[in-house]
Write a protein that binds this DNA or RNA. Sequence first.
RNA 1: GCCGGGGUGCCCGAGCGGUCAAGGGGCUGGCCUGGAGAGCCAGUAGGCGAAAGCCUUCGCGGGUUCGAAUCCCGCCCCCGGCGCCA
Length: 454
Amino acid sequence: MSWTIMELLRNDLSRLKLEMKKRMLDESLATKAAELDAQWRATLKEVDRLRHEHNKITREVASAPKELRQSKIEEAKKLLQQLQEMEKQLDELERQREIALMALPNLVHESVPVGDESASVPIRFYGKFKVYKDDLEQFKSQLGGNQVDFELLNWKPIPHADVMEQVLKLGNTIKAGDVASSRFYYLFDDLVWLDMALLAFAIDFMTSRGFTLVLPPYMLRGSIIKSLIDFETFKDAIYKVENEDLYLISTAEHPIAALYAGETIDRSSLPIKFVGASPAFRREAGAANKDLKGIFRVHQFHKVEQFVFSDPNQSWQIHEELISNAEALFRELDLPYRVINIASGDLGACAAKKYDLEVWMPAQAKFREMVSCSNCLDWQAYRLKIRYVEKNGDKGFVHTLNSTAIATSRAITAILENYQKEDGSVEVPKALRKYLEPFSAAPRDFIRPYKLSG
RNA sequence: GCCGGGGUGCCCGAGCGGUCAAGGGGCUGGCCUGGAGAGCCAGUAGGCGAAAGCCUUCGCGGGUUCGAAUCCCGCCCCCGGCGCCA
């Protein structure tokens, strides 16, 4: 037992409640969990005592002289009845305790701003932002008082969805809607090349930084998924395969985390760093009518994901490393962004701290999320039972961290808006060109509007 | 999908209804040593407990029994063969 949350539950309940308060969650969940845990432990003690008695008698049966056997067996039977009664209570308590424990969120790191979504703080800005002249005020309101470099446009960039469908004619969400449903898309030619190039770029970058490349299973068993995400997220996010206990992954984070489920890792071999490449499938059931146009919020996209199993002492350092990797990718793509320190009330249950990287979208006059980078501490590792062991035999739970490297559909929307020229053509980011070169049909420098390219 | 054979600790491997799950190997620590060689000793799954200790654990879940690694049922996975197939 060394799960941080469990230790607080047993030794410092008020601290745990404080943490939950920061997240604006109901603190009574902690009280309830603590009560159930105490009850469970007391009952377990009693059950263990009865089991011990029963085991003793049972062992004696074998060696007892014939005439004593029957009475020993009778004695055992009687004890067994008592035991089974207690075990039923224990099972029920255990079930309730488990539910209560699983409902507890992670700690909140001291550097996380406390409050709801509006308390999130932009901590860094990068790049030269392209701002349409009429959007200037809106732009400035999103800077959190920071001074940044920007360029005023006297023409209004076209939203990514319209560039894609009307100007370039390289995407079709209408037909995809007919044959699949909304939030699906067809991409053609240059946008497909762009998708591929983004993947190759991110994979190349991450592997050159020592991350092990992994292509994970695209589906996971229910038991695994359920230990990774809470029920609410689950319902809204996950596709299930009919007649199978299998679920489509919504990110490579999950199959990679599960790679070490139930395992014990030598402490000296930490950190273990992976870069996963996979499609991501999301129901987006909670998104209502948000971002229905275009390919910003879709049911299916490609993603390159960073994932690290870390030594507990190192995880905060690695968290910074992961966000800086993501930032380096967007710098090389020359997409202007800000990094947000997400407020406590807006954190997922598993994250103790989360950075979002948001790219400026000139047509929408908004920063939009491209990357999410979380330190889960030992919260995920406890659920998946991923331990480390030291040379002297001491054990603990590892820390896990995850961060997007590139999510293709979103990165494409950012390129379509930021690399858009006044004539509607879209320049190919220089960082991607070497990944397009080997293909004779791939775009070289510009993606041209449909009419002009014939 | 069908038929057959399997799943035992970190690894190999015995056990197939009754005391602590044999035996070997690896790893870690200790003794010994000039020496991480040989030899000897101990530790090497999870939980409860301050500790002593106890409980649980033989792929997973049920069942039979005073007692299950061992018998019965369902599921998962691996190997071999047949079938199907990009």
